[in-house]
């Protein structure tokens, strides 16, 4: 569905992505693992159009996204829930959701979707008039997810939704991710928390120093010895 081919993105002379290729399949949860500085966020920002790739193509059902403006990419059906959430702090929860639907003109549909978000995320409903900057980290993450969904994306990109959250909240976020997927949303997730990701994702990619170094199913990932040591923290069996 979403096909990234040979993407090179650079900051000045430093190439953060050195020819990245991967596919996100429709209806699945695809997870990108990797250490800090591997280029995971750079890839997300490139797909969303915030960064321009130097080379390569990004296709959504065959339609080229590379080179389009972020606004055009949103209207094509790709929404990014960014790292650190980036809610609009001086706007109410309700206004944040309205901003998420900025590209849409169907008032009735927008209101229906906002009610749907309130039904799914009950804390957001309780705090609908509260400034987003005053929410807790977990609540802000839920708001960021709901805001991303308000554009009715065909693919939802999520950049480290567990970052800086307490374990209980992380579990809640992953429940939501699984639930969204069951309802038919295609999800492309960046995570460092491999344990949590293993529970929900269908397909894995590992990125190191700007390159994809592993791809496979959760089963293959769990079997891979190198990955076990580096990302799952399990000790090698004695002998």
């Amino acid at each position: 569905m979403l096909k990234v081919s040979d993407i090179v993105t650079a900051y000045g002379k430093i190439e953060a992505l050195k020819g990245v290729s991967l596919q996100v399949e429709s209806g699945k949860i695809t997870c990108l693992l990797g250490p800090n500085g591997a280029g995971k966020t750079t890839l997300m920002m490139t797909i969303a159009g915030i960064l321009q790739p130097r080379r390569g193509s990004i296709r959504l059902d065959g339609k080229e996204l590379a080179g389009l403006s972020p606004a055009r990419i949103v209207s094509q059906g790709v929404a990014l829930v960014p790292e650190n959430r980036l809610v609009f702090p001086q706007m109410s929860v309700h206004e944040n959701l309205l901003a998420g639907a900025y590209q849409r003109r169907d008032r009735g549909g927008i209101n229906t979707d906002i009610e749907r978000m309130y039904a799914r995320f009950s804390t957001l409903k309780e705090r609908r008039e509260q400034m987003a900057g005053t929410l807790s980290g977990g609540e802000q993450q839920m708001l960021a997810v709901a805001r991303g969904l308000m554009s009715r994306p065909r693919v939802l990109l999520m950049d480290e939704p567990s970052l800086g959250l307490a374990p209980l909240i992380v579990a809640e976020i992953f429940d939501i991710i699984a639930e969204l997927n069951r309802d038919g949303t295609t999800i492309f997730l960046v995570e460092q928390n491999a344990h949590m990701a293993l529970q929900v994702a269908h397909q894995f990619f590992l990125m190191e120093q700007g390159r994809i170094t592993f791809q496979g199913t959760p089963g293959q990932l769990a079997e891979d010895e190198v990955i076990q040591r580096a990302y799952l923290g399990t000790r090698r069996a004695a002998g």
Binding site: G49, L86, V87, F88, P89, G100, Y102, G148
Partner: peptide
């Protein structure tokens, strides 16, 4: 207005404003 909402979103966080599809 919708345009005003967009402007306030840009004030709040320009990157996020791009991400929700504001030109």
């Amino acid at each position: 207005t919708r345009f005003g909402l967009g402007l306030r979103a840009i004030v709040g966080n320009p990157v996020a404003a791009h991400l929700v599809g504001i030109n």
